[in-house]
């Protein structure tokens, strides 16, 4: 009797459990779609604000946002683990080829905001303006600028007047952008810079270090740092990085910020991207200190 009963009971229990699981997962799928969104650390604050606000627009869609850098986001797109990759630089040719090779379709670019890469110094730094050439002298391999004195400055509170270069890790889109636009495409960064992992970390460190200079997105400025007025060539009028100068392109280091999808977006992802490009989505861009695209 017992021997006969046990397998029957077990079967019934198993059936019940599988039904329960089916019900659960089925219900979940119907009620909630999850969009995976990863990449650029410059965009991460805006992306999070979008995700939070979109909850009010469409309760059935959740967006999971994480940072890590543009390179990390695009790597995740290649591996097919995200729906949308954020990037503060354009996708590279070799990356696009890898996306096609592993997913069958290429990455499609969506411009979602405009940013300016701003060089920040401590708020007590007396610097008035800087040229792109001077930045290259500070940051590029072989550049000779090691002290604030080399720029003709004396920075109060800075011991030894040493120029403390703050930079980003190599998976950062901002790092790549500065390499291409400031140092020149085939030039490397000088070793010995403090390579931080986040846009906000750079501004925090510069804000607490009188000797420092560092770069980050326009939206990350605080009152403990000063955004340096930048001129494209020696003798030219310098342009202060603001929303207006980034929008009209007169600030030389302005750049579009992108979201990438695998092929043309479909379903919930398409609706989400449309909302991001709409007036409501772009208002959030402006609220976070970046330039809307419309």
């Amino acid at each position: 009797m017992i021997g006969n009963n046990n397998p029957v009971r077990a079967t019934i229990a198993l059936a019940c459990m599988s039904l329960l699981f089916a019900a659960c997962s089925g219900g979940d799928r119907a009620s909630r779609t999850l969009i995976q969104n990863k990449g650029s650390d410059t965009l991460v604050n805006v992306a999070q604000a979008w995700a939070e606000n979109y909850r009010k627009v469409d309760e059935s869609v959740g967006v999971a946002v994480s940072g890590g850098g543009s390179g990390t986001g695009i790597a995740a797109l290649i591996n097919g683990t995200v729906d949308i990759a954020n990037a503060s630089r354009g996708i590279k040719l070799e990356e696009q080829e890898k996306v096609k090779a592993s997913n069958g379709v290429g990455a499609v670019e969506h411009t979602v905001a405009v940013d300016a890469v701003v060089f920040f110094v401590h708020k007590d730094n007396p610097i008035k303006s800087i040229t792109v050439q001077q930045l290259a002298c500070i940051y590029a391999e072989g550049g000779k600028c090691e002290n604030w004195g080399d720029l003709g400055l004396e920075v109060p509170g800075c011991s030894g007047q040493e120029l403390i270069r703050v930079s980003r890790q190599s998976n950062s889109g901002t790092y790549e952008f500065v390499r291409e636009e400031v140092l020149g495409k085939n030039t490397d960064f000088k070793l010995g810079s403090r390579d931080l992992s986040g846009s906000k970390d750079v501004v925090d460190l510069v804000g607490s270090t009188p000797c420092a200079i560092g770069y980050s997105g326009l939206g990350y400025g605080t009152d403990r740092v000063k955004a340096v007025c930048l001129s494209a060539a020696p003798g030219e009028q310098c342009i202060a990085p603001t929303l207006a100068t980034a929008a009209d392109g007169s600030y030389v280091l302005s750049r579009p910020l992108f979201m990438y999808t695998l092929g043309e977006p479909k379903g919930a992802v398409a609706t989400y991207l449309e909302w991001i490009k709409s007036a409501a989505g772009q208002k959030i861009v402006a609220d976070n200190g970046f330039v809307p695209v419309r």
Binding site: G68, G69, G71, T72, A75, I78, K98, Q169, S170, N171, D195, S197
Partner: peptide, 8 residues
């Protein structure tokens, strides 16, 4: 730790 995440 800092670089492994981005590498192919």
């Amino acid at each position: 730790a800092a670089e492994l995440g981005e590498t192919a």
